[in-house]
């Protein structure tokens, strides 16, 4: 049934694609926040929320690669060091970059 998409659905997908740029900014904000707060529990929790949301919606819109990466990064958040968390988030930002 997903073969033939209605113009409305296509419009939604278009809208989502365009919103990806915004989402990169959000991720970058998170990176800055984590660095600033030295990866304290609060900043990590917030990053987690953002990723959680992104994982859900990106999957729904067919961006399986983003979905997968988000889930992976979520599991690595707060893992060992600030750098690890930042690196992980940078990976997503890079991935999103190609959809800009």
């Amino acid at each position: 049934m997903t073969d033939i998409e209605s113009p409305q659905i296509q419009a939604l997908k278009q809208r989502y694609r365009e919103s990806l740029a915004e989402k990169i900014e959000l991720i970058e904000q998170q990176i800055n926040l984590i660095v600033a707060a030295e990866a304290d529990a609060g900043s990590l929790e917030e990053a987690h929320q953002v990723l959680h949301k992104l994982a859900g919606s990106s999957g729904m819109y067919g961006y399986n690669d983003i979905n997968l990466l988000c889930r992976k990064v979520m599991s690595g958040l707060g893992g060992s060091s600030v750098d690890d968390s930042v690196n992980a988030l940078n990976q997503i930002a890079e991935l999103l970059e190609q959809y800009r």
């Binding site: 659905i9 939604l12 919606s57 819109y61």
Partner: peptide
């Protein structure tokens, strides 16, 4: 709460 998801699901269902 995620508008992206809500809109998509709502749209597909109403169709």
């Amino acid at each position: 709460d995620d508008a992206d998801i809500a809109d998509l699901v709502a749209m597909m269902m109403s169709e």
